[in-house]
Design a protein around this nucleic acid. Structure first.
Lengths: 225, 225
DNA sequence: ATGCCAAACCTTTAATCAACCTTAAAAAAG
DNA sequence: CTTTTTTAAGGTTGATTAAAGGTTTGGCAT
C-alpha cells in the first residue's frame, strides 16, 4: 500500500511520513503542487493525502487534473480548520474524504483504512484506465462501461505498456524489448500483428480510444473527441 | 538535458543509464564517490542522481562539497529503503529530492521531470521552441498557440537541426550528413524539397518563423518582426 | 550602371520504395 | 484439442526520390 503525501509544510509532511511508515505504509512526499501532480500522475499510488494550500499549484487543481487523466486513486484532502467551502469544492472535484488540520493520528489512520477499503470495492487491483477503457491486467479483461472483451496475454502487456507510457510515443523496439525480452528474434511484424489485434478489440468495444501510428517512430494512444 | 548517475552497483547503474537514454536524456555514469564528485564539479549537468552509500566517498559528502562550490544542480538522492535519517540529512545537505530503492521507473522519471521543472525547465525533453513555434520531436507535431500540423520524420529532423543550430547557418552538406547519413547518395535537391515542405507548413501555421536561404552557404531560421 | 548568363535555388509531380496493416495459416504451447 | 504465438504473404498507405521546369541571384561584360 503506497501513499503519496503532498504537503508543503516540511515539518508536517515529515511527521505524516513517519507516522505512516510506522504503520507499514510505503510513503512518498511532495512539497509543492507541481511535484505532487507529477507524482500523482504516475498512477502508482493507492492513496493520496493532499493539502489544499500549496505553492505552485493548489490541491484542488491537482485533484481535477488527475481525475481528468482517468486516475481514480482515492484522495483525502487536508484542509485548514473550518474551511467548509474548501471541503465542498474538494468533494465536487473528486476527493474521497477530507480531514481538517490539526487532526488526531488515529483519525487519520482510520480514514486511510476507510478510503482504501472503499477503493477495493470499486476498482479491482491491477486496473489501468485510459480514456473510456479499463484494463485489468490480472484477469486480462478490457472493458468500457457497457462492454467487455477478453485479451490474451501479449495484447494486455502491449496495452499496459501503451497506457503507462501514454504521454510518449512507444517504439516497436521498446515494445519488443518489454514483451519479448532484450535480445529476442521478434520482428517488427510481431508488434504490428498485436497492434492490429488490439485495434480490432477497441473497435468492438466502440471505445473512444485509438492507437495512433507515428510513422517511423512508434505508437501512441489517443482519445478521439 | 544531461544527467549524471553516481551509483556503485554496476547493474543498477547500467539499468538507470539505459532507462534515461531511452527517455531522451544524455547520461554519464560514475561508479565511486571520487569519480562522482569530479564529474559533478564540472557543473555541466542539469541533474545528478546520487547514491548515498558509495566507495571512496559517500553521497552526502559529495553533495555538501558541490553545494559548497556553489553548484546548484538539482540532486536526487538514492537511498536504501526506509532510511529516513538519510533523507533528513540529505535534504539538510542540499538535496532536492530523494528516492527509495527499489523504485518504479515511472516514479524516477516523474521526479526527474519535477526536479528539472523546479529548476526552471518547463518543457518536456522532446519539445523544442523557436519564435512562436513548438516542435514535438516525439509526436512529430509542430504547433503555434492557435494551430497544429503533423510533420513527417524527415521534416521534423530537419527542423530540429535548424532549431538547435539557430545561431548558425546550416549547410546542405551538414543536413545530408545528419538526416541521410555520412556517405549517402542524397542530392542537394533532396534537402531543397524538404525545406520547401517545411516552408509550406510554416506558412499554414501563419508562423512568424521563416527559413532563410543564404545563397551558397545554407539555411538559417529567422523570426519575422 | 545595364542587361545577360549561369549557377543556385524553388516547387511540383510522378514513380518508386519502405513502412505498415491485415489476414490466414502454420507452429508451438498448454 | 484448444488457445496463443509466430510466420508469411499480399495489399495499402504514405514517405522518399528523381526529374523537370520555373525563379532568383550575383557576377560579368558591355
Amino acid at each position: 500500500m503506497r501513499i503519496l503525501v503532498v504537503e508543503d509544510e516540511i515539518h508536517l509532511a515529515e511527521a505524516l511520513v513517519q507516522i505512516l511508515r510506522k504503520n507499514n505504509y510505503t510513503v512518498d512526499a511532495a512539497h509543492d503542487g507541481e511535484a505532487g501532480l507529477d507524482n500523482a500522475l504516475t498512477g502508482i499510488y493507492d492513496l493520496i493525502l493532499l493539502d489544499i494550500m500549496l505553492p505552485k499549484m493548489d490541491g484542488i487543481s491537482i485533484l481535477k487534473n488527475i481525475r481528468k487523466e482517468g486516475i481514480s486513486t482515492p484522495v483525502i484532502l487536508l484542509t485548514a480548520k473550518g474551511e467548509i467551502s474548501d471541503k465542498v469544492t474538494g468533494l465536487d472535484s473528486g476527493a474521497d474524504d477530507y480531514l481538517a488540520k490539526p487532526f488526531a493520528t488515529e483519525e487519520l489512520l482510520a480514514r486511510i483504512r476507510a478510503a482504501s477499503r472503499r477503493k477495493g470495492e470499486v476498482l479491482p487491483d491491477n486496473a489501468l484506465k485510459f480514456g473510456d477503457i479499463e484494463l485489468n491486467t490480472a484477469t486480462l479483461k478490457l472493458s468500457t462501461v457497457s462492454k467487455e472483451i477478453k485479451l490474451i496475454l501479449k495484447e494486455s502487456e502491449l496495452l499496459e505498456l501503451l497506457i503507462t507510457r501514454k504521454n510518449a510515443v512507444t517504439s516497436k523496439e521498446l515494445i519488443i524489448e518489454k514483451l519479448w525480452g532484450f535480445d529476442s528474434e521478434a520482428e517488427h511484424n510481431n508488434v504490428e500483428v498485436y497492434i492490429s489485434f488490439l485495434r480490432k478489440k477497441l473497435a468492438f468495444l466502440n471505445s473512444s480510444v485509438s492507437i495512433n501510428t507515428v510513422r517511423g517512430v512508434g505508437y501512441v494512444l489517443e482519445v478521439k473527441a
